[in-house]
């Protein structure tokens, strides 16, 4: 069972105050802590679990404009066998189509039974790369996968639909799955673990190694372009309750009473 898992590094913006860059097309990332995309973490874990159960190999792949060696080291520490990073400045501002094109160029010459991506990325949330990649590779795919069972030359997966409904789908291998959070419990990686994994194989390629042309790269090749970003106004809807915690609790209690609860 040879599995390729595609990963991305994203900034943690959950509790941060975000500032839009001068050109209006991105946010200032200097102060933000970056880590593996949440969905990708589950995808890496799922790949490693399958390998541990069935044998084979896991290859982590990243296409990035930045020096993301630490991202791939983390995947290796989790249990991936090797990693491939394609770093090129021109990936900055790339849309999903360009990223999937680059991934396709890496993956098409590798042996694989399954390719995993996260369902989407925490930053741009397009949820496109896996589906486009499957199209390029001409293999069947399933998105929003919450369970995988490997059978003889095929996989049976659960896809998460709406309203607590799932659908069971079978795919002939090779296939692409985009992995949903909650499918497993990703393992913790220690600094020691990352050090231990330092000896594992990590290949850094550039775009010309892949035979990618300039027309296939970056903002100019992207079909969907960012025109501008804006911050929604703070607390637009909510009336912010102020005062001591006790005063606020009293206000909340009276609001609840007025709504016919706590009465």
């Amino acid at each position: 069972m040879d599995i390729i898992v595609c990963v991305k590094k994203v900034p943690d913006t959950r509790e941060a105050e975000l500032i839009i860059t001068k050109d209006g097309k991105d946010i200032e990332k200097g102060e933000l802590v970056c880590d593996i995309n949440e969905w990708d973490r589950y995808a890496v874990e799922e790949a490693i679990r399958l390998k541990e159960e069935l044998g084979g190999s896991v290859t982590a792949v990243a296409v990035t404009p930045d020096e993301d060696e630490d991202l791939l080291r983390k995947c290796l520490a989790m249990g991936a066998d090797r990693a491939i990073m394609v770093k090129d400045e021109s990936f900055r501002g790339s849309d999903a189509h360009v990223i999937a094109t680059a991934l396709h160029h890496i993956i098409k010459d590798l042996p694989f039974d399954l390719v995993f991506t996260g369902v989407q990325a925490e930053d741009d949330g397009y949820a496109q790369v896996g589906g486009i990649l499957a199209g390029f590779l001409k293999v069947p795919h399933a998105t929003l996968v919450t369970q995988i069972e490997v059978l003889e030359r095929k996989v049976q997966v659960h896809r998460e639909l709406e309203e607590a409904l799932m659908e069971v789908v079978e795919l002939d291998m090779p296939a692409v799955c985009t992995i949903q959070t909650g499918i497993n419990e990703p393992r913790y990686v220690s600094i020691m673990g990352i050090r231990k994994a330092a000896k594992k194989e990590m290949k850094t390629l550039n775009t010309s190694d892949l035979g990618l042309t300039e027309e296939e790269l970056g903002d100019s090749a992207s079909k969907v372009k960012i025109k501008g970003l804006s911050l929604p106004p703070s607390g637009k809807g909510a009336e912010i309750l102020k005062g001591s915690t006790g005063e606020i609790a009293t206000k909340v209690a009276s609001i609840l009473k007025s709504k016919g609860v706590l009465a």
Binding site: I20, E122, G125, K225, I226, K227, L229, S230, L231, P232
Partner: peptide, 19 residues
């Protein structure tokens, strides 16, 4: 086509365009 979407978990609005 110009579309409005949300990025960074809904903390930023993005206007994107395509032909």
């Amino acid at each position: 086509l110009t579309a409005v979407r949300q990025i960074y978990g809904g903390k930023v609005n993005a206007e994107v365009a395509c032909s």
